[in-house]
Design a protein around this nucleic acid. Structure first.
Lengths: 280, 280
DNA sequence: ATGAAAGTATCGCATTGTGATACATAGTTT
DNA sequence: AAACTATGTATCACAATGCGATACTTTCAT
């Protein structure tokens, strides 16, 4: 039995944040999102798609009454579904609406999509677009390949920025103080035995990524995965995203990745950068 | 200038609903989602990605104070972003999290994904998976093609069930009273000049779809689009989803769609149905 | 300059959410 | 079966919290 709870989640979510102090904040809204987030934790920590009320309590940090109020509210709104038999809750299909709301107005994704699709056909590989959010890189566009695993096909996945190639490359092409702040806020724990966790080594790696214009991560976030990333840059040199192409063993190794996937990633990222600046 | 507002959205969202009466409901939560929904309306009705506070008021039905409170709350939580210069709000990247939360636990999508990818390669076409939500068909999985338009690549898009082939085919394979209820609740307005809007004609069309096991819609929801859909069925014959393959003119016409896309859609849907029942 | 419209801040009131408690139901163990 | 435990549901008095009218500030058009 896993021990949940306790690292009780960032709530109340600000009053700590510098420039959010004093802004109006409706606590109930924060709590409802704690409930929705509980399902994500439930999936990673408990490996189950549906949660009972008491599990929601533990994972959200809310008491029983609150958990019930918010869960039922979310059911009424369609964002959770409730199995009448088991009385357990699960994510509702209406949640997809917000993905659409975000993506449909996301110019970067719109521009990148056809270019990424083309790129995926070159070697029949998965190709992803990543963007920074806090200390994570989030996959926003993924062009899937039939043989890939389901989890690696889904947009919305998060990976700690410090230990994955898209993160490295975005941190590298970012004002240094911002990058430092991200590293400082990151939970620097080893994901695999190859994960770098000390700041100087990470900064050296970032410097090299900046120099080369790409980064190859050798099993630092996943065993048997040598993955490449190249930055999508604005004219001022800031990275707004990264193109990420994973290469899985045994099909790909460090050498073939350098020979084939690196140029592809760099070129794809550059084409996106160009289209982006043209469009402005 | 479009007149917005007024059809002030279904709020308070239940007390009307039969079996949701008396369930605890936190009004603030409902209102925060009104704000998020406002962005979707803003995109379709105003064609703009970001909204000012007063636009949020109109589109959400909230007063100025409430709109501000909830918008700022959502900014603090990361679900909206605010441009400091223009003071306008736009959807935040964190919204993607909920897509992931839903999809990662969605067995149907997991099973369907590789099968849909295979299908998309046969004629290099877009292939979609749709599911019912209220009176709409929602696209939950989409395998994009480079030449397609961005809007048709995004999961989360909704189409009224009555006038699109995936909807027709799902309604057809549904207990009749449920299908009738959906039609009754639908806003039966012509989308194109070919849209059927009278119930008997729609029911005849559904009957034929049930008989054939697929449906081809000829420009009923979009001009120059002849699209095919076939139902994904459980063992009891109920549809849980539909495979949808659009065929755009001039590349595709009614004849070539029948010859090629119909068998592909039917076969793909059947393979998903089989995998689904195997997995249980 | 002037005015209108949009955005932000303030604050007393009472509505609304709160959470302790009690009750009901499901699932397990003896 | 009965007894027990855990989990889910309902109730309710209190006051904290969200409410929204008002006033203030900024921005943009004229």
């Amino acid at each position: 039995m896993l021990d949940l709870a306790d690292d009780v989640l960032p709530y109340p979510p600000s009053e700590a944040d510098p420039d959010r102090r004093g802004k109006p904040f409706v606590a109930s809204v924060g709590k409802c999102f704690q409930v929705l987030k509980a399902f994500r934790r439930g999936q990673t920590e408990l490996r189950q798609r549906d949660l009972g009320l008491s599990e929601i309590c533990k994972l959200s940090g809310l008491d029983k009454s609150a958990a019930q109020r918010f869960s039922e509210t979310l059911v009424t709104l369609g964002y959770l579904e409730k199995d009448p038999g088991t009385r357990r809750y699960r994510p509702g299909i209406a949640l997809i609406d917000f993905y659409y709301t975000f993506m449909v107005s996301h110019r970067l994704a719109q521009i990148a999509m056809p270019i990424l699709i083309e790129a995926s056909k070159v070697y029949d590989t998965t190709v992803n677009l990543c963007e920074m959010e806090g200390t994570d890189a989030i996959y926003t566009v993924r062009i899937p390949q039939a043989k890939a695993s389901y989890g690696t096909m889904l947009a919305g996945r998060r990976v700690p920025a410090f230990c994955a190639s898209p993160g490295t490359v975005m941190l590298a092409h970012m004002p240094e103080d911002e990058a430092d702040a991200v590293l400082a806020a990151s939970d620097l724990r080893k994901i695999t035995e190859y994960t770098l966790t000390d700041i100087p080594a990470l900064k050296a790696q970032m410097a090299e990524a900046r120099r080369l214009g790409y980064h190859v991560s050798d099993q630092q976030s996943q065993i048997h995965n040598v993955s490449t990333a190249a930055p999508v840059l604005l004219m001022d040199g800031r990275a707004v995203a990264a193109v990420h192409i994973p290469g899985y063993a045994p099909q790909w190794n460090l050498e073939s990745v350098h020979e084939k996937l690196v140029p592809l990633a760099v070129d794809t990222a550059r084409r996106i950068s160009d289209s982006l600046t043209d469009a402005m």
